[in-house]
Amino acid sequence: MPTSITSATAIARERATARAANPAPDPDPAALPAGPGSQATTDSLGELEAGLDNLQDAPAASRPAAGRILLPLGTLAALLSLWQLAAWFGSPRTDLFPGPLEVLGTAGALAADGRLAEAVATSLQRGVLGFALALAIGTPLGLLLSASTTLRRGLGPLVSGLQVLPSVAWVPAAIIWFGLTDATVFFVVLMGATPSIANGFLSGVDMVPPQYRRLGTVLGASRTQQLLRIVLPAALPGYLAGLKQGWAFSWRSLMAAEIIAVGGSIGFGLGSLLQQGRDLSQMAVVVAAILAILAVGIAVELLVFTPLERRLLHRRGLAPGAGR
């Protein structure tokens, strides 16, 4: 067995030998067979490498983040102005086509009587809970499918199919099974989000470069180590994309369920608010509810998924658009 790897002392010893050998005019060529560069000491080699490294190290460029915030805000302001102008000058029927100021007033009234806060809180709570449930089922499902070829052949197409099926299709069945209860809402959210999460996990695992697994094998990883230390970390970006889509599906399914299933013991969510606006023919309420649904969706995206994703990709050098 060859000597085990050096310690600092061995390096020092080696450097000393190199220094000692250097002043000698012509070291025995047989004892020290080496190319033209062999005269260089370890020290100068290290120096040379350090110089080269420093030259190749690009200084980190930082960009002002202002454009990332100002640009979307400016766009939003422009769109709102256009909308207001259209409402003022374009439409004779403000009851059908309310402008942003009117919607804002309605939203203020909804906020004042507590309905808006209640609706947002109820929906968000259900969305998060339903998503957590889908996460708890979808992740092990994805793991199971990725681990067993048989299971994957059998269930894979079904899971992919379920991802395409609009989850509204489950609402009537859920109402028949669970009545007008929260169980109906959770069931629909679950059916909407779980396939996305499982599929995201699967595609994350599928896209792990085979090189990484081979590396694991060469490094002597056991099956468990291979999974925990190589495959799962490598699959994380794909999994996160699946989670993001899973959340989007949760939120959509939730709204569908809330719009259709109103009453009973089901609480008052944003979908219910939307449906109420429709029943009372209050267009401003409808628009305010739509905007609130949109705002919650954007807020979750910006506050939860974007930072997670940016951090994850940035650490791997995979976020070319991150600084732009």
Partner: peptide, 14 residues
């Protein structure tokens, strides 16, 4: 450079 590096290491650790 890496040739030299490799040669150095190989000679030290065989």
């Amino acid at each position: 450079l890496l040739h030299e590096e490799l040669e150095r290491i190989w000679r030290a650790h065989r």
